[in-house]
């Protein structure tokens, strides 16, 4: 990928990055990340979008310098993870997919101990912990064991903990997976605040609304490769139509109707129970459909979302 921006503004740069795992000594290596390239500038919120097994988490682990790359180049903050892992890790924050909170410690102790791992002086960490607990709205729970926290609280604590070293880059691996709607929105607010304060956010997600909400730019990954890179709006514009008309006919009738109505849409997609018509203007298309006496059981006009792009690019087959 060609870089148009000044080099010192690029915090993260990958080229031909590959990650292969070997389950056992004898087995064939499995390629999780298959030659990807990208660049992230300071202050950006950059997203990796993809189904399970697309290689998002492997990529994140390589960026976090906890998993060596099998091939290709990777520069984080201008350094090579293979040589300067500890240096890089001292300047980034990591929010892993499964909370790796220390179950034997209290909420506050989790931040204190983590800060000490960075070599911060005890006094400084104590002050920082109080400030971060406030930020994560956990001050009242400071002395309770982490096992008593709800999912949302745990995730907020993990984020608070990852900020203890004032990171320049924050890596978030599926930050809101498994949270209820209230907790998700609360977390998004926190992430917006961090972004405004100048921290570069790098996140993976398979929630389309999350990617649209949070990311300035994102890449769609599938089978270890990057299949598209753009802004959320750019991706929708390029890989979908502005609107989608969803029609439901009697079971088994979807394909027949798809052929009859194909000329009304830019693209049609047949699902077991629904027929999707991708079109610039859903309402007009619906009027034309009804004019042909097609009589769908139900119909719905909606704005195209990243989900449509995602499913177009990565397919509808379940991956696991």
């Amino acid at each position: 990928m060609a870089l148009q921006t000044p080099a010192d503004d690029v915090l993260l740069h990958a080229d031909g990055l590959v990650k292969r795992y070997r389950r056992t000594r004898r087995s064939e290596p499995f390629t999780a990340v298959d030659g990807i390239g990208f660049a992230v500038r300071r202050g950006e919120a950059f997203g990796f979008l993809g189904p399970n097994g697309a290689g998002k988490s492997s990529t994140m682990r390589m960026i976090a310098c906890v998993s060596p790359a099998s091939a290709g180049t990777l520069r984080v903050l201008g350094h090579d993870p293979a040589a300067d892992g500890a240096l890089i890790r001292s300047r980034i924050g990591v929010v892993p997919q499964d909370d790796t909170l220390d179950a034997e410690l209290t909420v506050r102790e989790n931040i204190l101990v983590y800060g000490r791992y960075f070599g911060l002086p005890r006094r400084a960490v104590r002050g920082k912990a109080a400030e971060l607990l406030e930020f994560a709205q956990l001050t009242e729970r400071a002395d309770s064991p982490v096992e008593n926290l709800s999912g949302g609280m745990r995730r907020r604590l993990t984020i608070a903990r990852s900020l203890v070293n004032d990171p320049e880059i924050l890596l978030l691996d599926e930050p809101t997976t498994g949270l209820d709607p209230q907790a998700r929105h609360a977390l998004w607010d926190k992430l917006f605040r961090l972004k405004r304060s100048g921290i570069t956010l790098i996140l993976t997600t398979h929630y389309m609304d999350e990617a649209e909400q949070l990311c300035d730019r994102l890449v769609v990954m599938d089978h270890g490769r990057i299949v598209a890179t753009d802004t959320p709006a750019g991706l929708i514009g390029r890989h979908s139509t502005p609107e989608v008309l969803e029609l439901r006919f009697h079971p088994g009738a979807q394909s027949v109707m798809a052929e009859k109505l194909a000329d009304l849409a830019v693209r049609t997609e047949v699902l077991p129970e629904r027929l999707l018509l991708y079109t610039a203007d859903g309402r007009t298309t619906l009027t034309r459909v009804l004019a042909r006496n097609a009589d769908p059981l139900t119909s719905l006009v909606r704005r195209a979302t990243l989900e449509d792009v995602f499913l177009t690019l990565t397919g509808r087959t379940l991956v696991d």
Binding site: C65, A82, D84, G85
Partner: peptide, 10 residues
């Protein structure tokens, strides 16, 4: 913190 960390830290 350890901003001036020596290389080869892995």
């Amino acid at each position: 913190g350890e901003r001036g960390h020596p290389p080869g830290g892995r």
